[in-house]
Design a protein around this nucleic acid. Structure first.
Length: 873
RNA sequence: GGACAUUUAGCUCAGCUGGUAGAGCAUGCGCUUGACGUGCGCAGGGUCACAGGUUCGAGUCCUGUAAUGUCCACCA
């Protein structure tokens, strides 16, 4: 880079080249290094079917910021990448693609289907990985994993067998959530509830002894086919004498009992409930308590089966219509009410879920949940922000057994075999040759696969080669931080915690850094159906990856959603350009000189000021990053670089640089030193531009990404100089302000007289006042007699600018009077405090001192203003 | 039904453990200032949702209210 280069930063010319440079340098690769402390993050593995969206971009950006920061701090950092096979989502896509060819998965069979799936993985699995690289993600690509690879599969089988042997995995007929479209069971977490308009059908069931009817209501009349009881509350006086009697199920004619169960609410509806154990989770429980028969009336397509009599073959909604019609004709329908009620649907395809009895595999959750709750209570796992603790506890404490079997082919096949000869179930890490019970060889493996989340739950250790005890596993586990959105706390985070505690006897990570959703400019969720999604790749192409990352980090507050706007992107792009131009300026001034990247022995006032300011910002940003306050860190970097360094220090330095004498050497060194160190602070956020510039400036080391993150240095604190610069800067600002008010262009220079008690300070600053406050000459003294000059009063000085012809005396007096008024108001406030015995007695000394100093300055200022007004009059 | 979050300048949001309200964008005025107009300088604009309370002092802590949003539960 040199001064001939483009005026504006061109990310497209830089990013791919820099990324290749990092890859070839091997900087992303992590090794076990006993001389360093480990720091590890496992990526939330994106689906192989996925395309990079803003949610990923945010998640990856946050992780990369953290991992780059820790790497520069000297940790041996591992960011372990990979992808998820996403059984249900991927299988759905493949099935859909096959439909285009007129094929179903049953037609081609399991083996051929899986061949297609692996081809799919080969074709698309790498796509999202390439997209992650565009963001600048510093993952250790040599350790990339896939949830269905050999190692992860081994871990899955190991866990399954262990849990089975411990009695924590069992198979049984239970009521589960069934998706008739995906034709598989899904877990409770995979059901989404939303409010629908429905109907409430009030029905009469005749008593078998002919003594009358019971009246009840239902939202799902078709389930009547599977009713095996009606229930009332045991203490309900209205129904005391029918408990134990029978009713005749309308249309079906079956006699079913009236049972008493406290599950029934007396004041809801009529206080009578129909019980369908096969198609309602609560009814299932009632059925268990009263030993009721379970009649499943629907098949896997939610079509009425052979138990449905004349309704067999109808789908559940057709059957509903037919049954309502028949009920009405039979005189069983009393009335129909409209009702709003919540209906569960499949989180993948949105089809209404059908609760259905089915034989499935389950994980017994209570014994796993308890220790998983404890590790959070003990602070071994911390949520950031910590309010997510509650959500986690609430879920874990009320958790039900986890249905883990899926009627899908793409996934980890359940390692259970059934003996055709004796019926034995064999759960084993490897396919058994013969039945251990009867010696039979007619074994058949369970057809089902495991919930995708079963394998993701093991991700923090399965990716580190567990169950093998490798040095990597020992060194990098537990991982340090997990970065993810609040939307998958239940699906993933909670399950990783209990899995880690159970199998590793150690939490999977110490911190869970939760972020929110990226919303569009109107605050709406980005979604395919709304078409309001913003493609991160297009953004990168237009603005650059650094601008995208910076925009995503700006205003980021843990756990909160954020809006993504073009303004934010433009502002970030402009910031990158600002950095670029600061670098260009430095080059214009150092090229051709031999400039060392170190602070000179002799520092000037402004040097000490910027060094001190840098020192403060380095300290604060490190603290912010350690506390995951990335948005705050971004803000401080932006302010420091733009406002302090560019708008002030560079402008101040020009005085020496343009003098061209030996004093300019010091300025060059300070410019280079502050700039390169600021680039380091900024590098985790904007990796590309910082590397590109850092390489062209004097530096030691191969890459900024493996340089040392700046640390707070006691020796770089110059509070005295900061105070002096503050005085000078205030004077400059005040003069500019006055000139601007009077519309004096910068080209119109004027003499400036400064009457001050800090003559020494202002003497040091007089060149700056000339340059930045457009003074032709600066005179400093104790007082001046310049009636009629424009007067500017700061806390430390009274400044005269003789521009008589520009002064409107009346306006000037009015302005000064107004200024006096506000000063007097502030003074009164301060004095109020000082006269308040409560304040004086209880406020800390430094606060009291501050107020006292302020009061003194104010009364001085008022005196100065008064004398100015007098002079004008 | 329960829980949580948000409410601060026209817009988007900062404001950590309480000490006289900030930024970006937008607006207005001025500027060919030898890095940058994707820029520079200056300005205007806020009873910090509302009502109480704690405190010498509250945007910040406590209680309640309202609006908005999210999650959990699922009474058929």
């Amino acid at each position: 880079m040199s001064k001939e280069l483009a005026k504006a930063y061109e990310p497209r010319e830089v990013e791919d080249r820099i990324y290749d440079f990092w890859l070839s340098g091997g900087y992303f690769h992590a090794e076990v290094d006993e001389n360093k402390r480990p720091y590890s993050i496992v990526i939330p593995p994106p689906n192989i079917t996925g395309q990079l969206h803003m949610g990923h971009a945010l998640d990856e950006t946050l992780q990369d910021i953290i991992i780059r920061f820790r790497r520069m701090q000297g940790y041996s950092t591992l960011w372990l990448p990979g992808t998820d096979h996403a059984s249900i989502a991927t299988e759905a896509k493949i099935v859909e693609a096959m439909r285009g060819e007129g094929l179903t998965k049953e037609e081609i069979g399991r083996e051929k289907f899986l061949e297609r799936a692996w081809e799919w993985k080969k074709k698309y699995g790498g796509r999202i990985i390439e997209q992650l690289k565009k963001l600048g993600s510093s993952c250790d690509w040599e350790r990339e994993r896939f949830t269905l690879d050999e190692g992860c599969s081994k871990a899955v089988r190991e866990v399954f067998v262990r849990l089975y042997e411990k009695g924590l995995i069992y198979r049984g007929e239970r009521i589960i959530n069934w998706c008739p479209h995906c034709r598989t069971s899904i877990s409770d977490a995979e059901v989404e509830f939303s409010e629908h308009d429905g109907h409430f059908w009030h029905l009469r069931y005749p008593l078998a002894d002919g003594s009358g009817y019971v009246q009840l209501a239902t939202t799902r009349p078709e389930t009547l086919l599977g009713d095996t009881a009606v229930a009332v509350h045991p203490e309900d006086e209205r129904y005391k004498d029918i408990i134990g009697k029978k009713v005749i199920l309308p249309l079906v004619g079956r006699e079913i009992p009236v049972v008493a169960d406290t599950y029934v609410e007396q004041d809801f509806g009529t206080g009578v409930v129909k019980i369908t154990p096969a198609h309602d989770p609560n009814d299932f429980e009632v059925g268990l308590r009263h030993d009721l028969p379970v009649i499943n009336v629907m098949d896997e397509n939610a079509v009425i089966n052979e138990n449905g009599g004349k309704y067999q073959g109808m789908d559940r909604y057709e059957a509903r219509k037919a049954i309502v019609k028949d009920l009405e004709e039979g005189g069983f329908l009393v009335k129909v009410e409209p009702i709003k009620h919540n209906v569960g649907s499949c989180y993948r395809c949105s089809t209404t879920v059908e609760p259905r009895i089915s034989k499935q595999w389950f994980v017994k959750m209570k014994p796993l949940a308890e220790p998983a709750i404890q590790v959070v209570r003990d602070g071994k796992v911390k949520f950031v922000p910590d309010r997510f603790d509650k959500i986690y506890y609430n879920w874990m404490e009320n958790i039900r057994d986890w249905c883990i079997s899926r009627q899908l082919w793409w996934g980890h096949r359940i390692p259970a075999w059934y003996c055709a000869d004796c019926g034995e179930t064999i759960v084993s890490r490897e396919a058994p040759g013969a039945c251990p019970k009867c010696g039979g060889i007619h074994l058949h493996q369970d057809e089902d696969t495991l919930d995708t989340w079963f394998s993701s739950a093991l991700w923090p250790f399965s990716t580190l080669s567990w169950p093998d005890e490798t040095p990597e596993l020992k060194y990098f586990y537990p991982t340090d931080t997990l970065v993810t959105g609040y939307d998958i706390i239940f699906f993933w985070v909670a399950r990783m915690i209990f899995s880690g505690v159970e199998h590793m006897h150690e939490v999977p990570f110490h911190t869970v850094f939760i972020h929110g959703l990226v919303r569009d400019a109107q605050g709406r969720k980005m979604s395919k159906s709304l078409g309001n999604g913003i493609d991160p790749l297009e953004v990168i192409d237009k603005y650059g990856a650094d601008a995208l990352r910076f925009a995503l980090a700006t205003g980021n507050s843990p756990g909160n959603d954020m809006r993504f706007t073009d303004e934010k992107l433009e502002s970030s792009r402009n910031f990158a350009n600002k950095i670029w131009n600061a670098a260009r300026f430095i080059h214009m001034n150092i090229d051709g000189h031999d400039v060392k990247n170190e602070l000179p022995a002799e520092l000037t006032l402004e040097d000490r000021w910027i060094v001190s300011a840098f020192n403060t910002v380095a300290k604060e940003i490190t603290e912010n990053l350690e506390k995951f306050e990335l948005g705050i860190a971004v803000q401080k970097l932006y302010d420091f670089l733009w406002d302090q360094f560019c708008d002030w220090y560079i402008e101040l330095a020009k005085t020496r640089l343009q003098a061209g004498d030996e004093t300019s050497t010091g300025a060059r060194q300070v410019l280079v030193w502050v700039m390169t160190n600021t680039l380091k602070l900024l590098h985790p956020f904007m990796p590309f531009i910082t590397e590109e510039i850092w390489q062209t400036l004097p530096h030691t080391g191969e890459s900024i990404m493996v340089s040392e993150y700046p640390k707070y240095e006691e020796s770089h604190c110059y509070p005295q100089d900061e105070e002096e610069m503050r005085r000078i800067m205030e004077a400059i600002r005040s003069i500019r302000n006055r000139r601007s008010e009077m519309n004096v262009p910068p080209s119109r220079k004027a003499r400036v007289y400064i009457a001050t008690a800090f003559a020494e300070t202002f003497r040091k600053g007089s060149a700056f006042i000339s340059r930045l406050a457009y003074a032709s000459e600066v005179e400093i003294g104790e007082s001046f007699d310049l009636p009629g000059a424009v007067t500017v009063v700061t806390a430390d000085a009274k400044i005269y600018i003789p521009m008589d012809e520009l002064v409107d005396k009346k306006a000037e007096i009015a302005r000064l009077s107004k200024e006096r008024e506000t000063a007097a108001k502030q003074l009164a406030q301060a004095e109020g405090k000082l006269n308040n015995p409560g304040f004086m007695g209880k406020a800390p000394a430094n606060v009291v001192e501050g107020v006292r100093a302020q009061a003194a300055k104010l009364s001085e200022k008022i005196a100065l203003i008064d004398s100015s007004i007098q002079a004008l009059q």
